[in-house]
Design a protein around this nucleic acid. Structure first.
Lengths: 118, 118, 118, 118
DNA sequence: GTGGTCTAGACCACG
DNA sequence: GTGGTCTAGACCACA
């Protein structure tokens, strides 16, 4: 995985894991690799990986069973909410940004239609 | 102006000024306030404002005349390119992000149409 | 039983058993379930349960007879001391904590009276 | 400051700072020492101190101004809520613990009155 | 083996 | 000078 230098690695990893959960690569309740294994996989320091996991846990996206490992939340609402939240953020950022550039809704619509080539 | 804590203030200021240029709030060739005045206006450290201005100048968006002041570029291509570049970035970020969440182009289209209420 | 994630499970189990002894749920000299049965009951790893029991035995609260089973101490002083010790710990923690927050004794008294609704 | 070995140092430091805020040793809006200075004062590693501060910030108890320093929250509700929350936790822990030992409210009242020597 | 904490030291962007 | 991030390595309690 290639990391963007401008945003903290642990955030990029969190984002990646969230995407994997949203897209079903990681299933609800599924056990995820140990911190050590993930650190090796992402080629980062264990502490960096640990931080990503702690944050994910704090957000209720994964949970930990002591001495056993970490698991994706079993709550289907969590996963659905995650997808909803992430897409809402993207939409808001895009529409808000375009409006900030002076485009109105119909112009944005045309532009995105063209970009999607639909 | 409220600053996001995650992204550098000088970048946020640059973005704000770019938007003002793109939307015509700042006209081509118009004189802009002094760094000191701008620092006061944005309520930031003068060094921070200085950096935002140097960057803008480096990108050819504003230019400085010694002892007189700074001005928005007179080149209309600059403004047009700026608008193009900023919107392209937004589009790419949005579409790429949505695809990363598992949406295909037609789904993205539906979602954005709904969000724009068109 | 719901375990607090911050304090070790074996301590929480020990605390629970101590309370059962102090409140008479487990009588003096009474036989307690096997480690295996207790592990199943508390839904924990057998090693964890083993540790809780060893600690309790080390503290003289339960004792083991080889090949027969484990029993709550027959010594009534043990039970009385246990109750005394546990309540003293609670009191000390409470009063010390409240004083640390800046309350003096009379204020603590008022607050606890109100909390107890007496 | 002497640290208890059973609970993480960063939590103990957080608790100490919270108490200082509640008792007015640290006033609302007051600038607190830099992370480096605090680390030296508490004789811990900078990272440990950093963690304590990040957590406090996440809880809204202090806030950071980039490159300038950290400050106690200016919101008086935050401070009041903090005091309330901390004392409520102590009371609940105490009363709940005593009831778990089999004492009823009137007995708890007698015991605490005796302990306070009022 | 698992996560959690701590230390040490370094680098960096920011103000 | 300030906070933030990252790496490296170590130790520990827990399951």
């Amino acid at each position: 995985m290639n990391f963007n230098t401008t945003v903290p690695i642990y955030l990029q990893i969190m984002d990646r894991i969230k995407k994997d959960i949203v897209t079903g690569v990681l299933a609800r309740g599924e056990r995820i690799d140990s911190v050590r294994a993930l650190a090796a996989k992402f080629e980062v320091n264990i502490n960096t990986m640990q931080r990503a996991c702690s944050e994910l846990e704090r957000q209720g996206i994964i949970f930990t069973q002591r001495g056993i490992g970490s698991f994706v939340s079993k709550d289907e609402n969590v996963v659905a909410a995650l997808k909803e939240e992430m897409s809402a953020k993207l939409i808001e950022g895009f529409v808000g940004g375009m409006e900030g550039l002076g485009y109105d809704k119909s112009e944005i619509f045309k532009i995105i239609r063209k970009a999607l080539a639909i």
